[in-house]
Simulated scan of single mutants.
Amino acid sequence: MDLDFSDNFIAKGKISIKELATKYKGDLDKEAGKKMLLDEKIKLRELQERLYADSGKSLLVVLQAMDAAGKDSLIEHVFGGVNPQGCEVHSFKTPSSKEYSHDFLWRHYLALPEKGKIGIFNRSHYESVLVCKVHPDYNLNEKVWNSVSDFDDKFWQERYESIRNFEKHLSENGTTVIKIFLHISKEAQKKRFLDRIDEQDKNWKFSMGDLPERALWDEYMKAYERAINETSKDHAPWFVIPGDDKWFARVAAIQIIIDALEGMDLKFPKLSEADQKELEGARKQLESE
């Protein structure tokens, strides 16, 4: 089955979050999807090995979503088969006092993947135009502005511009950037929250702070819509994946990631003639022992 998830879910032009599906309605069924995921994990590991050997490029995968959308489990199921030496996950929580003492991108620069590696941002620099847009008073922790009234449209436009410039700089210096938004419905989030409450082994996942944030659902959807529209570029595209069915979100995500790696034209290093002669000498020495 030939499914082009990269083309189907890329955010082109101006999107409307309300008009985008949260549930997969295609022909792929769950069992076939699970098998496809296993096959694609083998391909992803092979591509990661090639990325590591090439050592001239890197991949940054940005994951954003509402609470309970399945970011953590997606990382586990998609990247569970890759070599951990070539893949790093960074989960960004509320900035520390030290992080607040720098510009909002500083801590994200520190977490960027080295050449030859895959970096995963579980939440990211976009929190500064998502959570901080819904709660603008959070920006006061940066101690640069005096009041919430400072956060006008000009302020937000400058934030989007900083993010666009940051990602453009990365793309021009060997890092491919792809950004994935797991788009779930409010109903799906409710069900997952109730599962966390009802199932004892999931109780630890639930926080009472989740409910006040859920009450701001519409404000978050507006913030996501604008952030995606302002920052989805050819060199750093956004992909909006239906997230109500976790199995499907994982299949779509891994294929988008594989497409990005395949587009990097990765090659295993070729040895020079002198190096090949040295290898042949090493072979002879070993065989003579």
Rank of each mutant, 00 (worst) to 15 (best):
R159P: 04
F166P: 05
V134M: 05
S185I: 04
Q157I: 07
F181R: 04
Y224I: 08
D152L: 04
S147F: 06
E158I: 05
I178F: 04
D218Q: 09
A215K: 14
A188W: 03
T231I: 11
P136H: 00
A236D: 10
M221L: 14
F166S: 07
Y160T: 02
Q189T: 01
K143N: 11
E225Q: 15
D234R: 04
H169N: 11
I180V: 11
D153W: 04
I228L: 08
T175M: 12
T231R: 02
V240C: 00
E199V: 09
K190I: 14
A188H: 06
E230G: 02
Q157L: 11
V144E: 12
K168M: 14
P237L: 02
N229V: 02
A236S: 15
I184Q: 01
I180R: 00
S185G: 15
Y224H: 02
W217S: 08
F151C: 03
A227H: 05
P136A: 07
K133L: 09
H235Y: 15
R196Q: 03
H135M: 13
K143Y: 01
D210C: 12
K222C: 02
S207Q: 14
Q157H: 09
L170Y: 08
N229K: 11
V131P: 12
F181T: 00
Y160V: 05
K186F: 02
D210Q: 08
N229I: 05
P212N: 05
P237Q: 06
F193N: 04
G209A: 15
I163M: 05
V148H: 07
I178D: 00
Q189E: 12
K168G: 13
G243K: 09
T176S: 15
Q200C: 07
P136L: 13
L182F: 06
L170T: 11
R226Q: 13
E230H: 00
I197R: 10
Q157V: 06
T176C: 12
E158T: 06
E167F: 05
M221H: 05
W145Q: 02
G174C: 14
Q189F: 01
I178K: 01
V131W: 10
P237F: 03
I178Y: 07
S232Q: 10
T231Y: 00
H135A: 10
L140H: 07
S147Q: 04
L194Q: 15
K222S: 12
M208L: 09
Y138Q: 12
K205S: 04
K190H: 13
F206T: 03
N139A: 08
R196S: 08
D218S: 05
D150I: 02
V177L: 07
K168H: 15
E199P: 04
W145H: 09
W238N: 08
E172D: 15
E142Y: 10
D210Y: 11
R226W: 09
W145I: 06
T175D: 07
K191A: 15
